[in-house]
Design a protein around this nucleic acid. Sequence first.
DNA 1: ATGACTGCAAAGCCTTTGCACGCAA
DNA 2: TTGCGTGCAAAGGCTTTGCAGTCAT
Lengths: 148, 148
Amino acid sequence: MGAKRGQEWLEYATTQLRRAGYQRSDARLGVIEALAAHDCAVTAPELEAELRGREPTAGRATVYRVLEQLERLELVHRVDVGREISSFERAGPGTEHHHHIVCQNCGRINPFEDKGLERVVKRVSKESSFAISEHEIVLRGMCPSCSS
Amino acid sequence: MGAKRGQEWLEYATTQLRRAGYQRSDARLGVIEALAAHDCAVTAPELEAELRGREPTAGRATVYRVLEQLERLELVHRVDVGREISSFERAGPGTEHHHHIVCQNCGRINPFEDKGLERVVKRVSKESSFAISEHEIVLRGMCPSCSS
DNA sequence: ATGACTGCAAAGCCTTTGCACGCAA
DNA sequence: TTGCGTGCAAAGGCTTTGCAGTCAT
């Protein structure tokens, strides 16, 4: 089932790339096939490792370049699931729980909080099989200044 | 107001650190003061830069070490707001919009989706002054295997 | 005195980029 | 042929770590 959907995506992605003017190439196909085999988040280094010695293969730089192309065509989404290159903020007394809206153009970060959102997150957390201890929500878009 | 709350936090943090058995030190105080001056996400390199040439100051390694101590005492939260060290996943045909639950112990990633959550996020997005084009939600906790 | 704490510098990752070569069209 | 696409290697940025010296208690 994951495989089947992967196949569907692979064909669509290939078409869209061609439509966008990209040439056909083995290396790019390699990256796309590797992605098609995954249903959830994969990192570039993971893809690079999977492709090493495989056929068709692709070098490190190509993996990154293809991911960038796919992202631009909305054929992949970037997800920050890791815990590196983080920001920090105070927690505890004198602080308030909040989340962030980040401007994709200028990087400006805007905090926000919403009671209803917290309620739903709490419910979802309870419904999951994990023992959830924290959550993080990031909205991305254009800030007022960058929109005008 | 941000300053006042920062002060409240600073005092609480100092107390908690002492209570946890940490010694008093200028460098650590420098990091805490720098944090107290921020109400939202800051990165370690930003703190390092702010502290450079300041008094009390703190070196790079110390900044990271203090942040780690504070995080362990729940005096700061780590937030991944950036766009680096990312994971990628297919988007478009043959894929479904979903979010992630990450095990803080083994790193296992579990996808989930929830209609109610999406509804609330859409509402919040509309209410903001930004033109939101995407969102990302990460829940963190212990997976069933790591809990037992 | 003793152990905690610190800075420095180097190493380890992830990601990006310059450049020369190779391949698609 | 033309220029897009690729691999390699090196550079750049964030984070961690070893080590010797310093400071709190």
